[in-house]
């Protein structure tokens, strides 16, 4: 499904701010894989998601989605294959537009947009049902401006938008990190349901090791721009947070730097 070969990206090359964020990363996802991604601050997790999404071009290496080489495809074209939820809850939705309008724009991702009515009548009913599944009461606020919603509501809405049209790959970047624990748990539960129901191939970045173990069928750990741990199936199910911490020390020779991941 996703095949990344020898991916390199250095930011601000030749300056004192030079930073190699991806350093020869290889990753191969099978159809239907639900992979959780962990790693310390600055390991390159968001950079990996941005590379796949095409926010900028990598310095070296290739990215293939479902057999198509997308390495040089512009971001908006690649979006046809991808569903994306950002780390920042403000990034995934248009605040000054209505909930339905946001959904309608997402529903046309990867399709040719025409000079026809942007939200059809029948769609409203469809979106109402879709929003009901979130169980956040949004189904009664179709014409509310998204900017008036809470961070958790916006993130849940973004998740719904990202999963529309069954993307070939769903990418979630710490999409619950900015939410309170209760909302975070709820959004994670919705994530699990959406991924299983639609059988989506998924890449879920998280800072929470417990979440990383509890969700998905495969877990990868990033360090310094590449993948240092990759476990799946039965082996992954048996993982504990301690195992992960030990693996991190082994791979990096350092203590895991983020308390955020160990607490909670």
């Amino acid at each position: 499904m996703l095949k990344i070969t020898d991916l390199h990206k250095t930011f601000n090359p030749g300056t004192i701010n030079e930073k190699t964020a991806l350093d020869g990363l290889n990753l191969h996802l099978k159809d239907g894989d639900f992979v959780t991604v962990i790693g310390g601050n600055g390991a390159g997790k968001s950079t990996l998601q941005n590379a796949i999404a095409g926010v900028w071009k990598p310095d070296y290496g290739t990215i293939e989605i479902d057999g198509v080489d997308v390495t040089h495809m512009p971001e908006h074209q690649r979006a046809a294959f991808l569903g994306r939820v950002f780390q920042d809850p403000m990034k995934g939705t248009a605040p000054d537009m209505e909930i339905v309008e946001n959904l309608a724009i997402a529903a046309r991702r990867g399709k040719k947009r025409k000079l026809v009515w942007g939200v059809r009548k029948a769609e409203r009913e469809e979106y109402k049902r879709l929003l009901e599944t979130l169980d956040l009461g949004l189904e009664n606020r179709l014409t509310t401006k998204v900017g008036l919603l809470s961070g958790g509501q916006r993130q849940a809405l973004t998740l719904l938008m990202a999963s529309m049209n069954k993307p070939k790959l769903l990418m979630l970047d710490e999409h619950t990190a900015a939410l309170d624990p209760k909302t975070a748990a709820k959004v994670l539960e919705i994530t699990d349901r959406i991924v299983t129901e639609n059988k989506l191939t998924t890449l879920m970045i998280t800072h929470n090791m417990k979440d990383a173990i509890a969700h998905g069928n495969r877990l990868i750990m990033m360090y310094d721009g590449h993948i240092v741990v990759d476990v799946e199936g039965e082996e992954k199910k048996k993982l504990t947070v301690e195992d992960l911490l030990n693996m991190f020390v082994q791979a990096s020779g350092k203590e895991f730097a983020s308390d955020r991941a160990i607490l909670s």
Binding site: A53, H76, A79, R84, K91, G92, P95
Partner: peptide
């Protein structure tokens, strides 16, 4: 949406 949120717009194709 382009003016309102370019990141979201690009992500939605």
């Amino acid at each position: 949406s382009t003016g309102d949120n370019p990141d979201m717009s690009r992500a939605q194709g």
